[in-house]
Design a binder for these strands. Structure first.
Lengths: 204, 204
DNA sequence: GTCTATAGATTGATAGAC
DNA sequence: GTCTATCAATCTATAGAC
């Protein structure tokens, strides 16, 4: 029952938000009375914090597993790509927990939020060090800001649940395309640095 | 007073969410009683809908102004860059209204949400046609999915308020870096792979 | 472990005075 | 236009039976 409540709570918190989620609605979906939840969790705050913490822990652990599976003699690009697939698959795999972790940080009650911020900063630091490794191997142009590179990559990835459609290609294939766009850009190699081509004023 | 209430409501809706925002808290910040809000707005739903609609309208209009200011004989890349700067500056300029528009679509009461979804889809369609124009001029590699390109670009841009720091560079400079990363990638030209053909297609 | 019953606080909204 | 006063509904949480 505890697991059932956590699942239902995760879904509701992720989609409706913290305040909009009521103990009654969770209990209704679980087929029990609202008061019975308090046998498993001391309060609504504890419930949401368990959900968010579980989401955060699962994501971090999942990424580290992917990164650690890369041979230590591989380059920074291989580790980076593993992290990309790791973060994407974590967000898909842990579904509502991951969504709750991502969307509820700002809605949490003050004390619960403070306790979760550290994990978020740790994750940002992991990505910054991956990017710094790339730069050390001269795989990132020197004029680009690394913080901006992180945003450019994590912006799309962290919303993967909102746009990923498994019917249009596997997650591995999408991760490859994202890494390809990130490293090589969307332009064809032949078009890459031309003097402005006088394009015909057509283009519908 | 109506404008004051809208401003305060926008900030609260954007940061706290719909349900967590109370009429009393808005009234308190405005220095009036909660009941007085109902002289200006019929209900909480009407209030949030005015906020979200104003945010959406402002953004769409602002982007179109930027795009329409590009000479009609310019290429699709120039229009695209104008749209990038337009969307970013709109999100900054309209602050809480823009944030409310972006974050509240899922939290809105059912009827209000349906009315706002159209605007969102229109905006997505604008970006898809900009990307299609780029492809028509062979500025996007043929093996890349255009919907994924849109996500890759809008993911970072739509969260611009969360990471933009004016002390680290103007918005124009940041927009330039983003476009550069989008088109050319982060790798130095010398390290870049030659065109990589025949993506592994859909595996699973 | 789950229930019934209920306390205590807060919410969106209305009525009517000024 | 804003106020005071208030209502009905809903919320989190507790107490105690089973």
């Amino acid at each position: 029952m505890r697991e059932t409540l956590l699942q239902l709570a995760a879904r509701s918190f992720a989609t409706q938000g913290y305040t909009a989620t009521t103990m009654r609605s969770i209990a209704d979906q679980a087929g029990i009375e609202a008061a019975s939840i308090y046998y498993h969790f001391a309060s609504k705050e504890e419930l949401v914090e368990v959900v968010v913490a579980h989401g955060g822990d699962s994501i971090v652990q999942h990424i580290r597993e992917h990164v650690d599976a890369v041979p230590s003699d591989a380059g920074s690009e291989a580790r980076f790509k593993a992290a990309v697939l790791g973060q994407m698959s974590a967000l898909i795999k842990f579904g509502d927990y991951a969504l709750a972790h991502g969307r509820l940080l700002t809605q949490l009650p003050d004390k619960a939020r403070e306790r979760q911020v550290k994990r978020h900063e740790q994750n940002q630091q992991l990505w910054m060090s991956l990017l710094e490794d790339l730069r050390a191997e001269r795989l990132v142009r020197p004029e680009l800001d690394l913080a901006l590179c992180r945003v450019m990559l994590l912006g799309p990835i962290n919303s993967v649940q909102g746009w990923f459609n498994p019917r249009k290609g596997s997650l591995e294939h999408v991760a490859d395309q994202i890494c390809s766009m990130f490293f090589e850009g969307v332009k064809p190699a032949t078009t890459r640095k031309p003097a402005r081509r006088a394009a015909p004023a057509v283009s519908s």
